[in-house]
């Protein structure tokens, strides 16, 4: 009997925690991030309702059928009832899976041709970024030309690429990152953009976004990459487009 009350109390406390405002998602700074939040909210509502129904049903049943000397019923099943809850849950679950495909497709299945391409290089335990210079193309690379101290982590040979330790992107323009790793798996994660992608050595993985709000955002590495994993902090700076263009031009001169 106490256990029924306890189940209800813990479930209630859990629900209360989910409606508190103190710890929640960071601000959303792209159209995708806003879509993401609304689908997440929908999902949380659905599971919240399922959670409350199931816990309440459990607590009520336990309370109501506590031992008061009654005779247990001899019911062993009820096909109609079982069919109803099987189909209901199946419809809800599969429905959610289908409703959520849009946000996935937006990041991974659709691309725009005019996106600004930026190469991202991860290594234990730092990020570097590379932009095509005025010639509009990425230069050749060679592992033997790698020189971290000399500012050439990519091993770029020739060309006019711009290499930077901070990721700068223009607000409002589509960006396509080309993610590469030099050693182990890392993960590129921007909370405010609601995107996350493993960076796998031996592969070049595209990741697309359009950030709308200028500002500086943290990029925490989110795939265990060794003892410096928790210090592999990157920075994304979203700039007004004019400022970005000026920065890129300046970088090309240097």
């Amino acid at each position: 009997m106490q256990v029924a009350i306890l189940i209800a109390a813990l479930a209630g406390a859990t629900v209360l925690l989910f409606v508190q405002p103190a710890w929640w998602l960071p601000e959303a700074i792209s159209a995708h991030a806003k879509n993401y939040d609304s689908h997440l909210l929908l999902t949380l509502w659905v599971i919240g309702v399922l959670f409350v129904i199931a816990q309440a049903l459990l607590a009520i049943t336990v309370f109501r059928f506590r031992d008061r000397g009654q005779q247990p019923s001899a019911v062993e099943g009820n096909h109609k009832l079982e069919l109803i809850w099987t189909t209901t849950t199946a419809v809800i679950f599969i429905g959610l899976a289908i409703a959520g495909q849009g946000i996935w497709a937006g990041v991974h299945l659709r691309s725009s041709a005019d996106a600004l391409k930026i190469e991202v290089l991860a290594k234990q335990f730092a990020w570097s970024y590379r932009y095509a210079g005025p010639d509009g193309a990425f230069a050749r690379t060679d592992v033997k030309a790698i020189d971290d101290a000399g500012g050439n982590p990519f091993g770029v040979v020739g060309g006019d690429d711009i290499i930077a330790p901070i990721l700068r992107v223009p607000a409002g323009r589509p960006v396509e990152l080309l993610l590469k790793s030099r050693d182990v798996i890392h993960n590129f994660f921007v909370r405010e953009l609601r995107i996350k992608q493993d960076v796998v050595p031996g592969m070049t993985i595209p990741l697309r976004f359009t950030a709308d709000k200028p500002g500086a955002y943290e990029v925490p590495c989110s795939e265990l990459c060794g003892l410096g994993h928790h210090q592999m902090r990157g920075t994304l700076v979203v700039m007004p487009p004019e400022e970005f263009d000026a920065w890129l031009r300046e970088g090309a001169v240097r």
Partner: peptide, 18 residues
């Protein structure tokens, strides 16, 4: 129940993006 419902969040690739 408590651990199970959050599987519906993590099972969606779109939401797993975060």
């Amino acid at each position: 129940i408590t651990g199970g419902v959050t599987g519906l969040v993590l099972g969606q690739p779109g939401l797993d993006l975060y």
